[in-house]
Nucleic acid binder design. Sequence first.
RNA 1: GCGCGCGUAGCUCAGGUGGUCAGAGCACCGCCCUUACAAGGCGGCGGCCGCCGGUUCGAGUCCGGCCGCGCGCACCA
Length: 844
Amino acid sequence: MALQDRTRFEPAEVEPRIIERWLASGLFHPDPEDPTPGWSVAIPPPNVTGALHMGHALNGSVQDALVRRHRMQGERTKWILGTDHAGIATQTQVEKLLASEGTSREALGREAFIARTWAWRERYGGTIIGQLERLGASCDYASERFTLDDGYVRAVLEVFTRLYDKGLIYRDNYMVNWDPGSHSAISDLEVEEREVDDHLYAIAYPLAGGSGEVVVATVRPETMLADTAIAVHPDDERHAHLVGRTAVLPLVGRELPIIADAYVKPDFGTGCLKITPGHDPNDFEIGRRHELPEISVIGEDGRMTEAAGPSYAGLGVLDARERVVADLGDAVRSVEAYRHTVPFSHRSGERIEPLISLQWFMAMHELARPALDAVRDGRLRIHPASERRRYERWLQEIRPWCISRQLWWGHQIPVFYRGDEVHVGTRAPDGEGWTQDPDVLDTWFSSALWPFATLGWPQDTAELRAFYPTAVLSTARDILFLWVARMVMMGLEFTGDVPFRDVYVHSVIQAPDGRRMSKSLGTGIDPLEEIERHGADAVRFGLLAMSSTQDVKYSPEKVAQGQALANKLFNASRFVLGKVPEGTRPAPRPAAVEDRWILSRLQAIKADTAARFAAFDFSKLAFGLYDFVYRELCDWYLELIKHREVDEDLGATLLHVLRETLALAHPVIPFVTEELWEHAGGGEGEHGLLAGARMPAVDDALRDPAAEAAIEAVIGAVTTVRGWRNDAQVKPGAFLRARLNAAGYEQTAGLVARLARLDLSANGGDPAATVAVPGGTVEVLASGDFDPAEAQQRLEQQRADLRREIARAEGKLGNQGFVAKAPPDVVAAEREKLARLRADLEAL
RNA sequence: GCGCGCGUAGCUCAGGUGGUCAGAGCACCGCCCUUACAAGGCGGCGGCCGCCGGUUCGAGUCCGGCCGCGCGCACCA
């Protein structure tokens, strides 16, 4: 496309074309054998079932900005890409599909179901990869991984086996969060608390021997069928006499010992707690402490079991509750409405049924300690600091991780049983009768190996040597424990090094009204639709600009700002490239003070941008670029040089500034900059792409404080005169005859004259108005082009403002306390300010 | 309940270590089709910086207490 044919940047036309060039260039697929230092990022693997949402888009923008910047710094950069098999999510999707076909997973059988799921994944699994491409993410698409591919499976087996041999993975009957929805145990981290309205029942249990009773409170009367004790607080004098005695469980007749345990809150309810180790996590702990029997009356299907007795067996939990309450009759002493929070499955949304179940667990304390140390000694840095504190707290209070899931889709647990024999390994030992554990591992077990399993571990590959540890892990805060902390533990355990040096925890993007973005609420905004509407550059810029250390509301204005920036850069480039002669070689060749100024400002924005990248301050990074392009480059520099003849020097400087600006902005808005780069001469190498060009370094020799001061004055003077013209109702096009009575404009009077539309050539005539500008005044000579009365009013306003400021400064300096106690330089600055204000007033 | 964070122009947000810090974008008003951009340019309106105290010569900026909101952790059956 000829650049001069359009006045607007058209992302929809340009971006797909640019993507093709990037992918064809091979720039995103680094050679691991190359000796250049490696720099890598591992993408949080999206679910194969997933589609790009705003969180992915933000995280993609963050990671891509980092990756592109480092690639342009000459590092051998790899962005590790892949998808997660996402056990529950994927299995649920496929089961839904089967249901719509009138069949089911059970009808198919395990092998066929898994084959079907693979086929489903082949067909629908890759959509998010294409969507990342559309965002402009420069991932290594040529070596995409999957958490169930062959190499990955080997890594998982290796880790399982080694942890088992170390005794850190073990099988136990333990209280788990049973999710009746997915028919599987789930980990503590997959449980969410929700507030519900329940009833609190007070139930009387008679003491053995008929000498009184003990009243307990419960929201789940049906679980009493599994009670094995009553507990009171050891210091509770009201109930001290009960400890050691025995109560009789109503309906069942079982004798329950009355024990003392500090867990019981004496001031809650009656101060007496029924203990049900089989169906309550806290009771389970108490039961283990006191070696109580563990009875289960609720099964994995959520129905009462035979152990509940003939009149309850087979009933659903709620029906059983009703029946129990009815059967208790007078023993129910009170029922009151009760609101409290209870656990629900994050996945299925069903209420968790705490059950004792035979599951695989991972002991975490031994693994957690090195992960804590890594943060404390600085090998791992977490940004922002508040997230680091969360990380530490969780690791300190870490609990065993239930890693088995009663699913089919995933890494089947590599353990084989034959009678009492147990064998851990890839395949069953020789001989008949071995059966493999039917469960699969928690999806997060395999995700925890992501940064090294994707690079070929446990083999010692060139990729592993080149790209491990990765540099930065960028993620949202909701998976800091679920994923990030576990990667650190596994990385340290199996590679001896942290899996990444920096963790950047980014904002969660909420809907514009502050609610959570979600499909079910209808509050979601599709990033792809935003990209279609405004361009990928605009969305990337907007997301980075709105990011923060806190959650943020989605801001369409910031996306619009990004779109405006892309367009501005497009038009600025059209202007520059239309002026620069063919064959110009870009170079800083300042011929005038404004050239020295823009070159100096360019060094400043380069340095600021580098610092903001280092600090993960993406919002300031984005706004800083916006401000430089809009304000300094377009509003001022291009206006300042507009009427100069573009000779070799100016041409070289213009092209230099443009190209460095494009390079600097490329990591944030890669498409428009890549497109314009080609028009601005392109780059080295066969592809000539900006994505593969070098990031310009800061050149301190081009910093020029004198030029900055001179142009600052010009900007101040022009702005002030424009404001005055507006107030004095000067005809917009008129060039007013005026005298510039001010210091500091030796080289720039002509610039002021042109941009403020003044004719400074006249020396005669009476001043009809005075305007204060930095360093002095502009005296405007009488003419018919403005209204003297309005001008006078404006002048009075200016004088009043000055007098007010003078009075404030005088008051401050007249304050003994200030002069005596404030630091000398602050006092001196105040005196200087006062003198300047007085001089300004004098001049008017 | 404990912990963390936030409440600054109509809206969304910036404002390390207290002294031009009262800002940006959008919205709004006025003027301008000035040959890069009218989805543009120029200028402007607009804020007891949540409330009440305190520390200080001086406080959006520090301390305490309220009020409102968000998040994290733990939950009392």
